[in-house]
């Protein structure tokens, strides 16, 4: 009885100061963010409203007054830039997830587990996310450069605007294979269909995704609670189950 009363009391104190937090989320983190938001609401009583988009677009919206309290970016340069420009709170930035790159084909058996398929070159199109815009695209270029295959493969690039579209090009079979994010292929903690080579992390710079509190989130308890929750074990378990490293 006593314990129940305590739990009830905690729950009440949480709802007493319950607030809203508006979170801008990079498109590649959509699925885990939704799960984390559910846990977050249940555990803290705060409500998290999620908006999704490409990191560059979210940046433009934030710089032009979008009502976001927190940004979960798809890279680590955008939050740093926001902070340097005075649009984000200094000292709140941290890496909430590190992405893994995968060479993937929807066709079983096309991609071997060492990526030798790149040398054989038996494909017409290889999809990558635009390296200028997407960290996964830049990582793909670094991987090809490290393997000394960039010149051989470059002419067969089809560039997607983001990692979601790169996945789509491969999933529809229009590109035989492509570099995508491991998080896109994970279903219930396992790799889905097709064939894949999980690129060793040593072949490219780490794909760090950083979170930061935006100016508008200053002094909001719900924003601080969200950042704290994101660092906690429950959130980390969700993030890992989607194929990110934490």
């Amino acid at each position: 009885m006593k314990r129940n009363a305590l739990v009830l009391g905690l729950a009440m104190s949480a709802t007493a100061q319950a607030g809203d937090v508006q979170v801008a989320v990079a498109a590649n983190f959509m699925a885990p963010a939704k799960q984390i938001a559910q846990h977050f609401e249940r555990d803290t009583g705060h409500k998290a409203t999620l908006s999704f988009g490409g990191t560059g677009k979210l940046y433009a919206q934030i710089r032009n007054g979008a009502p976001f309290d927190v940004m979960l970016a798809g890279d680590d340069t955008t939050p740093a830039r926001l902070e340097a420009e005075g649009g984000a709170l200094a000292g709140t930035r941290f890496t909430y997830a590190t992405g893994r790159l995968v060479l993937w084909s929807a066709r079983p058996g096309l991609v071997d587990d060492k990526g030798e398929v790149l040398k054989k070159g038996e494909f017409k199109h290889i999809a990558i996310a635009n390296p200028r815009l997407a960290p996964y695209g830049a990582a793909a270029i670094e991987t090809l450069t490290a393997r000394r295959l960039l010149d051989a493969v470059q002419a067969r690039f089809v560039q997607a605007d983001n990692i979601a579209q790169a996945h789509q090009f491969v999933a529809t079979g229009n590109a035989e294979l492509g570099f995508v994010a491991l998080s896109q292929l994970m279903k219930n903690g396992k790799l889905g269909e097709g064939s894949a080579w999980v690129v060793p992390a040593s072949l490219h710079q780490p794909i760090r995704q950083d979170a930061v509190i935006i100016d508008k989130g200053k002094g909001k308890p719900a924003a601080e609670a969200w950042m704290k929750y994101l660092k906690g074990d429950k959130a980390k378990a969700v993030i890992k189950s989607f194929g990110y490293e934490v």
Binding site: G54, A60, N130, F157, A160, Q165
Partner: peptide, 24 residues
């Protein structure tokens, strides 16, 4: 959706402007 952003083949102005904006 169907272009693949290939120079001289499918990279038209509207897509390139979008790229410039996304790249800030």
């Amino acid at each position: 959706m169907i272009g693949g952003n290939i120079p001289d083949q499918t990279r038209v102005v509207s897509v390139l402007i979008y790229d410039h904006v996304e790249a800030m």
